[in-house]
């Protein structure tokens, strides 16, 4: 057995609690949600800025609004979905994890470039790019 038995139930319970909290409360309005240290110090957005508000919007089914807060998070969702589909399938069928794209040498490099580009571009205060900012 590779994972301890309480890992999966523990993680799922934690996620369920977080989902309820993020559904019920808008992180943009309540002070109790943590703020990004990078944004607090510099006033600039990091690639993760806006993701709490984006999760709140997603839980209410507002995908466009979520993309407005953090496009990277919304874009990563299909990728995460395929990964967890393969992971679940591997666990159920007891076969090896089979999504080769994760192990491809170019994948991580492309993601690295996308993350850095997103970080830079969302801080450009000009016409097409400021739509990427977290609080546009």
């Amino acid at each position: 057995m590779r994972y301890k038995t309480w890992y999966l139930p523990g993680i799922l319970t934690g996620l369920a609690i977080l989902a309820v909290v993020y559904y019920r409360y808008d992180p943009g309005r309540y002070i109790y949600f943590p703020k990004c240290p990078f944004h607090s110090l510099t006033g600039l957005d990091c690639p993760g800025c806006g993701s709490q508000r984006a999760i709140h919007a997603l839980l209410h089914g507002r995908v466009a609004q979520a993309a407005d807060h953090n496009l990277l998070l919304v874009m990563s969702l299909p990728f995460l979905a395929v990964h967890y589909y393969h992971k679940t399938r591997a666990a159920v069928s007891r076969h090896a994890y089979a999504w080769g794209l994760i192990g491809h040498p170019a994948t991580a490099k492309v993601i690295f470039v996308v993350v850095v580009l997103f970080w830079v571009l969302r801080n450009v205060p000009a016409a097409p790019f400021h739509y990427l900012a977290s609080d546009h």
């Binding site: 990078f38 990091c46 690639p47 993760g48 993701s51 953090n70 990277l72 998070l73 990563s76 990728f79 995460l80 990964h83 994760i102 192990g103 994948t107 991580a108 993601i111 993350v115």
Partner: peptide, 18 residues
């Protein structure tokens, strides 16, 4: 092939510690 923790790294990037 060793596990590369790509998905976990993406989650950490987007959700907290850049």
């Amino acid at each position: 092939r060793p596990k590369n923790y790509l998905i976990e790294s993406i989650l950490v990037t987007i959700l907290c510690c850049l």
